[in-house]
Amino acid sequence: MKEIVLITGANGLIARELSKRLEKEYTVRFLTRKKQHANEFEWNLKNGTVDENAFENISHVIHLAGAGVAEKRWTGERKKEIISSRVDTARLILKTLQKNNRKLKSFISASGINYYGTETTEKIFTEQDAPGNDFLSEVTVLWEQAADKFRDQHIAERVVKLRTGVVLSEKEGALKKMLPPLRAGIGSPLGTGNQYMPWIHIHDICSMYEFALQNPELHGAFNAVAPEHATNRDLTEQAAEILKKPLFMPNVPSFVLKLIFGELSVAVLEGSRASCEKIQNAGFQFEFPHLKEALKDLLKN
């Protein structure tokens, strides 16, 4: 019999793409707010309820649930939602597994590369570095602590946390938002353009989850970013080149982005580099290690 993998964040980009791969070797189930298919099970974080049938005979959980950090301004209420959608969902899963005396082979959780803080420096962060001290760092620390509880309380044999950078996809996220102005010939870098953007191709982040699932010796945190470092300017210029569009507009001033997005603007105006050597040393191979090849693949249509 196939092992059963339960995925949260069913409507997210990574969950949709990852599930297509896993269905060949695993039985895939989803936790979702509204059941639409036979392999979906409902949960309601507000009420603290979950369909416990989702956990019957499962071996692995891939925890991808989380409200988008860049979708709305960071009001006090939105900040609570960003944290709760990651942390309280993990706690609900843990509580349900404990209640039903179920154990996992692995709990694999999304995490964020902003663990190290949101600032532009020349440092290249590794998994050994301490967390930062801003909001996104706080979110990620709490997220990972919630994941580690599965190991600490002996519910999962191992916990893997993938500190994910900017996922490049033409379907969703940062790249999709960049494309309309670029295609209209009015694209430009944001702020100074010198802020680093730790990035990863959608194909590679899905491959990394699959790699983490299939290699039981993996545990702990891994930076899920491509080997090649790039700035916001690099991304903008290379995308424009591939689209054969001019890039003559001035940079979008930082103060304009701050007026529009408030505190959230730091997520696009700042960024540092991170090393992926740890996951590579574990045997993972990137299909798209270089930004230009990644963009050519995503923008080929």
Rank of each mutant, 00 (worst) to 15 (best):
G185Q: 08
A110L: 03
L22R: 05
A54Y: 04
A90S: 15
Y196G: 05
H37G: 04
M178I: 02
N251E: 06
D148M: 11
N101E: 12
N47C: 10
A38K: 14
P180Q: 10
S85A: 09
V141Y: 04
M1Q: 15
K35L: 14
L136Q: 06
V61N: 01
M197D: 01
A110D: 03
F107D: 00
L175C: 02
A267P: 01
R86S: 04
L94F: 02
W143Q: 00
D204W: 03
N44G: 13
I7E: 00
F284G: 09
A10N: 06
L243Y: 01
A67Y: 04
K79C: 08
A239H: 00
N39Q: 15
I186L: 13
A156I: 09
T140Y: 06
L213H: 02
K72Q: 13
S169W: 04
I62C: 01
A230E: 01
A230M: 08
R102T: 15
T49D: 05
S19T: 07
F261N: 04
C206I: 11
K95F: 09
L182E: 00
I4N: 05
V69E: 09
R86C: 03
L182T: 03
D234S: 12
Y196I: 10
K278L: 05
S188R: 02
R273Y: 09
Y115A: 02
E228W: 13
D152K: 13
N47H: 12
Q238A: 01
P289T: 06
N251L: 02
A147H: 02
K171M: 02
I7N: 00
I260Q: 07
G173A: 11
Q98I: 12
L218K: 02
N223M: 04
W74S: 03
Y196F: 15
H154M: 11
A221N: 08
Q195M: 11
N301W: 00
T96A: 12
Q238W: 01
E81L: 12
D88H: 10
F30D: 07
S19M: 05
K103G: 07
V5D: 01
A239I: 00
D152Y: 04
V225I: 14
R33F: 03
H63G: 06
K34D: 11
R16H: 11
A221F: 06
I200D: 03
P180H: 10
L18D: 00
I124V: 14
P253I: 15
L175D: 00
L92T: 08
V225R: 01
D88E: 14
L22S: 05
R102K: 15
F55V: 08
A240T: 01
N100L: 13
F284N: 09
A294M: 05
P198S: 12
R273Q: 15
G220N: 04
R91W: 08
F288W: 10
E210V: 06
A65D: 08
T75I: 12
Q98R: 13
N44Y: 11
L136S: 03
